[in-house]
Amino acid sequence: MGVIQRAMVRACPHVWFERSEMRDRHLVTKRLGEHVSDKTKLPILIFPEGTCINNTSVMMFKKGSFEIGGTIYPVAIKYDPQFGDAFWNSSKHSMVSYLLRMMTSWALKCNVWYLHPVSREEGEDAVHFANRVKSAIAKQGGLIELDWDGGLKRDSQRIFQRGTAEELQQDNCRRT
């Protein structure tokens, strides 16, 4: 993985960060803001859910991508399972077995919709802006909108300790 990652970094600029490190989040927000304000740079590709989903739903977006300003160019992507399932269930399959399955699949077919650009409205906070973009993507792709964070699927231990997924989501919001 390290070889692939280093090759990607050399091929085009990336912004790497550690989600659990609060200081990194502020630095990333600053770097993204600088990138967006520089009109000579290419647009940034962001997956605001922060995780993979099984092609049926759109989970809660991370608000950080929507705090930096600039115009968002939403893209709805929905895989067609006709020739193979592109979803990687990381709790069941290793990355190597997933990559092997993808590379030996006859084809992967997906529908891609480029939606109209959107900007943050006056007085709109980042959470409402993110939800507005998420709704547009879900509607276009015929996907279900979920109100919970994708990180919950990897945090089942804390769900059992804290009670409900909703309580865990509120706890996560307080920590960010």
Rank of each mutant, 00 (worst) to 15 (best):
S57R: 05
H93N: 13
N55T: 12
N89P: 05
N55I: 04
A76P: 08
F83C: 13
Q82M: 08
K62L: 15
K78M: 00
I53M: 14
K92M: 07
I77T: 12
F87Q: 02
T51G: 03
T71R: 03
F61N: 02
C52Y: 07
C52I: 10
N55G: 00
S65E: 11
K63Y: 15
S57A: 00
G70I: 02
I72Y: 05
P81S: 00
W88H: 02
D80T: 10
Q82N: 01
G70Y: 00
V58D: 00
G69Q: 00
P81W: 10
G50T: 15
F66W: 10
S65C: 15
Y73P: 03
T51K: 11
W88Y: 05
T56C: 02
S91C: 12
I68P: 12
F83L: 10
I77K: 02
F83A: 14
G84S: 08
V75S: 00
K78A: 06
T56E: 13
T51C: 11
K63W: 15
P81K: 02
D80Q: 08
V75T: 14
C52N: 01
S90F: 04
A86V: 13
F83K: 15
I53G: 04
P81T: 12
G50S: 14
V75P: 03
S91Q: 04
K78H: 05
K78D: 07
S65I: 07
S90I: 04
T71W: 06
M60K: 11
V58L: 00
C52F: 03
V58A: 00
Q82E: 08
G84C: 07
K78Y: 07
K78T: 09
F66P: 02
V75R: 05
G50W: 08
D85L: 05
G69L: 08
K62M: 15
K62T: 15
G50I: 14
P81E: 14
W88A: 10
V75G: 12
I72N: 04
I68S: 03
S94F: 02
S57H: 08
D80N: 12
F83P: 01
K78R: 12
G64R: 01
S90N: 09
T51D: 01
I72L: 07
G70K: 03
E67C: 13
H93R: 13
A86L: 04
H93D: 08
G64P: 13
S94I: 08
A76L: 06
M60I: 02
D80R: 05
K78F: 09
K92R: 11
F83G: 04
G50Y: 14
S57K: 05
K92D: 04
A76W: 01
Y73C: 07
Q82P: 09
A76G: 06
F87P: 04
I77W: 03
V58Y: 00
D85E: 07
I72A: 05
I77Q: 03
D85A: 07
S90H: 14
A76Q: 06
P74K: 11
S91W: 11
D80F: 01
W88K: 14
Y73I: 03
W88R: 11
S57I: 11
I77G: 10
N55L: 06
Y79G: 12
S91G: 09
P81F: 02
T51Q: 02
V58T: 08
D80P: 09
H93P: 04
V58E: 06
V58C: 03
S94E: 00
G50P: 07
A76N: 06
N54V: 11
S94H: 14
F87N: 01
F66A: 13
Q82K: 14
P81D: 13
C52Q: 08
K63R: 15
F61A: 01
